[in-house]
Design a protein around this nucleic acid. Structure first.
Length: 508
RNA sequence: GUCUUGUUAGCUCAGCUGGUAGAGCAUCUCACUUUUAAUGAGGAUGCCGUUGGUUCGAAUCCAACACAGGACACCA
């Protein structure tokens, strides 16, 4: 049974008393006519007035009580709406007779009230609203966290994000930035002539990435469905179909571990661009960042924890070149399997000697280079062995036309000129099946329908995916993905409600 | 998955080498008509995460479990 808590009981009592007095504690007749920030802007002139008040003006504002200072026959309240916080002055003699004494103990911090009145400036110099009329719109029966320390417990903040949002205004700002980033990305690609599309989230075959999918069941068809791990293969079908520039911003689902950079569902943008190559993607990616910084009004030298990221300094380097130039690995060994293995062993890294040259180079990159890539860096020319979906470079068939973008030591984007040879694609799927049978449960499944699509001819195309959550982390100086997700995945708590347990039992 | 830290009042936190739980805010009563975390006086508030064990006695020691934070590993 909820609401057993003493403080909740006291507040339920107050709601009942309001009802007795004829005040609905959950009324629906708000007549708010301005926001708090507008009130403050419009009345900034009141301070210059002779008696520091404008009794002829009238505003109705509403908000949640954050502070309540009751002083006998008058009181000050701070109320907050989405736009800001406002001080409100309630004096007994300015209200209908008896009203103030009736209501002053029935409202409290957490309640949402509406007040009508005129602007004035207090002796302490704060623009406030002098109340002529007051009503409780919504009674809160659970008390808010403490007014000074707020709520700091991470678990409570993630599970009860609404409390976090009520108490911590910076949190709200982070999510406003997140919303803007998504909106700007959408606008950027629309302005470039891209078409936003929606492809299925429930896939018969989970493809487009190396990841374990979630499985669900479609009762009517009697078949299992996979929550998508990437929209890639559907978006490329659309290129086959004749759309030349498409993008999709939405969720992917991966049935893997959770940590500071991984949530089971995460948001990405993937975009595919016909008649273009990965070189064009590098240019459009730089442009996108320009666009974001311009419209977000952020400094190009952005602090990130201890680091400072300079978004005016995009650089580009080949993966193998980066090993010596950035990672400090001797240039003489980076193209020699045996020497790399010896080098890694000397430094006490566990080495799988069955790895091919490309995999070993990737290993060196992960160990010695990745963390050092603070300013935005395009790493290009990925070995063919670790790029199964990317097109080989015509100049050097050992590497692919691919890049990954790293910022603050983390991968932010992955892009390449797409493989559009259907026979080659079929062979690569087949070798993935072999890998799957050898125990690699993240290997791609054969997608014959996709191969069929390619067989009708896909124009030369370049495609890119950008992790929105990680991008927002960087732009908001957050170091956990949970701080840029409104409702991060959390394990359910054991239910204390027996009826709920029963339902779960019956379902089994 | 491994290691590590945490879980005490609505919130933020004390509670030492075991002796039956405390502060601030909030809440309740009283005073107070320009306060700024308002102030002053008085009162109430606890499955000390859960389950076991050791002990005359456990918030405290031990074990298992649950949840969370952090680090590492795995993964892209």
């Amino acid at each position: 049974m909820p609401f057993q808590n003493l403080y909740v009981q006291q507040r339920i009592e107050k709601a009942a008393k309001l009802k007795e007095l004829g005040f609905n504690p959950y009324r629906n007749d708000s007549s708010r006519n301005t926001s708090i920030s507008k009130f403050i802007n419009v009345n900034s002139d009141v301070e210059q007035m002779e008696n520091k008040r404008a009794e002829s003006r009238s505003y109705t504002v509403a908000g949640r009580i954050k502070l309540y200072r009751l002083m006998g026959k008058a009181s000050f309240l701070k109320i907050e709406d989405e736009s800001g916080m406002l001080q409100v002055y309630v004096a007994r003699d300015n209200l209908p007779e008896g009203f103030y004494n009736e209501i002053k103990k029935l409202m409290e911090v957490g309640d949402i009230i509406e007040v009508e009145g005129y602007p004035f400036v207090t002796q302490q110099g704060e623009l406030s609203l002098h109340v002529n009329e007051l009503k409780v719109l919504t009674k809160a029966i659970s008390p808010l966290p403490e007014k000074y320390h707020g709520i700091t417990d991470k678990e409570a903040r993630y599970r009860q994000r609404y409390l976090d949002l009520i108490m911590n205004s910076e949190v709200k700002k982070t999510f406003i930035v997140r919303s803007k980033v998504i909106s700007l990305i959408r606008r950027f690609f629309e302005e470039k002539g891209f078409l936003e599309v929606e492809t299925p989230m429930m896939h018969p075959i989970a493809g487009g990435a190396n990841a374990k999918p979630f499985v669900t069941h479609h009762n009517a068809l009697g078949i299992d469905r996979y929550l998508r791990i990437a929209p890639e293969l559907y978006l490329k079908r659309l290129i086959v179909g004749g759309f030349e520039a498409v993008f999709e911003i939405n969720r992917n689902f991966r049935n893997e571990g959770m940590d500071a950079t991984h949530n089971p569902e995460f948001t990405s943008i993937e975009f595919y661009w016909a008649y273009k190559t990965y070189r064009d993607l590098i240019e459009i990616t730089k442009e996108l960042f320009e666009y974001l910084f311009e419209h977000l009004d952020r400094p190009k030298k952005l602090p990130y924890g201890e680091l400072e990221i300079d978004f005016d300094k995009f650089t580009e380097i080949g993966l193998v070149d980066s090993l010596s130039a950035i990672g400090g690995v001797p240039a003489a060994i980076v193209n020699d399997k045996a020497k790399i293995i010896a080098y890694l062993k000397e430094r006490n890294f566990s080495v799988n000697e069955k790895m091919n040259l490309g995999q070993l180079q990737a290993e060196l990159f992960d160990e010695f280079v990745e963390a050092k890539l603070i300013n935005p860096t395009f790493i290009t020319d990925y070995p063919v062995e670790i790029s199964p979906l990317a097109r080989r470079s015509d100049a050097n068939p050992e590497v692919t036309e691919r890049f990954e973008l790293f910022i603050a030591g983390k991968e932010i984007a992955n892009a390449f000129s797409e493989l559009n040879d259907p026979v080659d694609q079929y062979e690569r799927f087949k070798s993935q099946i072999d890998a799957k049978e050898c125990g690699d449960d993240e290997a791609h499944a054969m997608d014959e329908d996709y191969v069929t699509a390619l067989s009708y001819g896909m124009a030369p195309t370049a495609g890119e995916g950008i992790g929105i959550d990680r991008l927002v982390m960087m732009l908001t100086n957050q170091h956990s993905i949970r701080d840029v997700l409104l409702f991060p995945a959390m394990k359910p708590l054991p239910s204390t409600d027996q009826s709920e347990n029963k339902i779960q039992e019956e379902d089994k």
